[in-house]
Write a protein that binds this DNA or RNA. Sequence first.
RNA 1: GCCUCUGUGGCUUAGCGGUAUAGCGGCUGAUUCGUAAUCAGCAGGUCGGGGGUUCAAAUCCCCCCGGAGGCUCCA
Length: 636
Amino acid sequence: MQLLLIHSDYIEYEVKKSTPVAEKIEESFKTGRLEEALTAFMAVEKADESDIDGIINKAVGEIRNVAGQVKAANIMLYPYAHLSSDLSSPKAAVAVLKGVEEALSGDYTVKRAPFGWYKAFRISCKGHPLSELSRSIVPEGKPAACGEPVVCQEEKEEVVSEALKAESTARSYWHILTPDGELHDTKGFDFTGHENLQKFVNYEISKQRAVERAPPHVELMRRLEIADYEPGSDSGNMRYYPKGRLIKSLLEEFVLEESYKVGAMEVETPLMYDMNHPTLKKYLDRFPARQYSIESDKRHMFLRFAACFGQFLMNHDMTISYKSLPMKMIEMTRYSFRKEQRGELVGLRRLRAFTMPDMHSLCTDMQQAVEQFDAQYNMCISVLDKVGIKVDDFEVAVRFTRDFYNDNRDFITNLARTVKKPVLVEMWDTRFFYFVLKFEFNFVDALAKASALSTVQIDVENAERYDINYIDTDGVAKKPVILHCSPSGAIERCIYGLLEKEAMRTENGGVPMLPVWLSPTQVRVIPISDKHMGFAQQIADQLQCRVDIDDREDTVGKKVREAAREWIPYIVVIGDKEAETGNINVTLRAESQPEKPKKVEMTPEQLNARILSETSGMPYKGLPLAKMLSARPKFL
RNA sequence: GCCUCUGUGGCUUAGCGGUAUAGCGGCUGAUUCGUAAUCAGCAGGUCGGGGGUUCAAAUCCCCCCGGAGGCUCCA
């Protein structure tokens, strides 16, 4: 049932004309007026028919509740079909209306407008915050017994897509595909040597997901001053400190550069779209995600969960020749929004606002699409590798329809061959989503939780839906096949992956660190006393990387300890010896073991060359914080 | 959204019916120091918010908010 409650100075109505479903009424019932009334506009819906008494109970509870809050003694019940597009039978509606009227009439002055008549009405709304409320009431499995507290569900402005609903009924066939092309049953498969895949399979199929502690990256993201929760925002919307922003910028820039290399054009598209746009509405129903929705004037908008809409709407308006295909567009979506359920949010693993590189490729036909899929599969492997997430750190899932598999067996086997290890396969008899083939690289974390990073999908639906065309060699407009690709997956999730990987390294007795190109401070220079500051400065100036100087009044031991806690790759201590020889003593984190720092004497030039070669080809940005540690604020 | 757990100065935390403990960090002073924490002093808390029980609540109860885990879901 849909309820619209208006606290009014008065409400009056007058019957004009009967409709085919009109109830028979007395002459006196044809007009009505009530002063200082709470008016309840009601629409009884199909779903309510299963539990008429329960619905009456809930509606009465809700009306009583609001009437109590606004201190209304008079109640007007007003049947109002326009609140719903899924109305119940007239018989059920009248039964509910009468039931509600009867239940309320003991404690309030209740009037009811007749059902099934065209009516004219005048209402004067009081306009205070509680004076206009809407409620959506749904029946429960069983009717609420009398006297039980009645729980009313408030109207949620959440759109649950058809795809989410479809997914729950989709029948999946799970297999393990080995590089030799064999499809194995997941049950009998020998996972020896593929323990991570086993964890991933358990996570995906057996749903073994119980863990007893928070994921380690949550503490790390805070301790390293990367990111933090922001209680002043919605859950899953994080704040990023300067170091976190630097890491994100570098990753964003890197992924964009890699996509330029394969010919992608960078674009920017709006964050919010009209919920009632005909094309978008249909697309929402095919994507399994929940949206944030917001009001803009009279329009009902939603925040984008990817860059698809913006790019597709742009593609629709373009003139595209076959000569331009495959044609790629990318946007670094800051942000994509998904209103994930509260319990699904964890640290940087799953967010409601996240940065996702979203690339779309228009292809002439399925053959070109498959070629592109293969190229982008390899590109994703390379992107993650350079980010610091290796093939051994993730497990591959490939999902497709049975038809696609039968037409492309060799091609799919090749995907397993490329990564040289078995992959998880999910096959569907029929196509539930907009794609016929997709893969994801799933990072398996310290607690055996899996989450998707890179992904590519072959979309066979949206060219039609958005009316996207290209002109082929014969001069005829044709619909392209579209690839969706996120080369790295969400940027925040890459950081999560790196932190989790290092947490696992720590547990296995290693020394954790970020790749040098992503380390906020690459070299920390520590002068032993004030008199060494000059030389320390000189060394810092010689190095072409992110160098800072710990000029605080602390002991060398303490400064080194803090530098190590920050995972700084290179620590240089400057004292009399260095000032004399000109050589520097460098602690190399990458070659150290716990309690056993690896210290090497080298020239500043050698250190510089080493860092330049380690970071060559990767984006660079300057220090995100003051060079002198004494001038730095603490974020936590 | 539902279920379970949780919330004490900037951070970590003791206390779990008699208005609060310590460490780190911060500030001040001393120390100018050779690789995982130099010494001393000072400041800082209406114990997440609101309501209730009680002579008395950080401690018990209820509601709300944040966080973690589960269901579910994904980049």
